[in-house]
Amino acid sequence: MKNLIVYLLLCLFTVSCGSKKEYEPVNENASLPASFDFNAMNLKVVTSSINHKKQTMMTLYGNDSAIDELKDHPENNNHKERILALITWSQKEDPYWYGAKIPNHLLSVEIVKSKEPFSENSEILYQKYEGKELRKANADGRDRIRTILSMKPSIMP
């Protein structure tokens, strides 16, 4: 009998501990491996998008000359290197806001580079890195380059 009471108390204790909300100080599943050193490229946000069919969300980053070219600002036309990077995540429901979805797992990083304006250059470099560890993938990027270059910068006043 005594054992049973102790057991029940233990159960109650575990249950009450378990129901306490645990906050994620960092969204680890969605984070990039530190070794990839994404921030070293020093890119800014260009835009974001969502694919309802694939349940993914994406953020496009770029350097200034790439962003200017995507914005169609001819006055800023220069011949500096262009860099764009698209990060794709799967989605999950936000545990703290019913009605919101947030990034779940890191799926890929795609990088598009060109020494000259995208519009003038046929030699556009495409690299794709996949999975949590961002392993380099062999991918033909022709369609992807077209898709990424057609993305419009978000309005940020």
Binding site: S48, T59, Y98, K101
Partner: peptide, 19 residues
């Protein structure tokens, strides 16, 4: 605009998307 994004959200309740 020059800061780093730390996350993004899709809001089904009000039809917006956020960074």
């Amino acid at each position: 605009k020059n800061w780093k994004p730390i996350s993004s959200t899709e809001r089904l309740d009000n039809g917006t998307m956020r960074i």
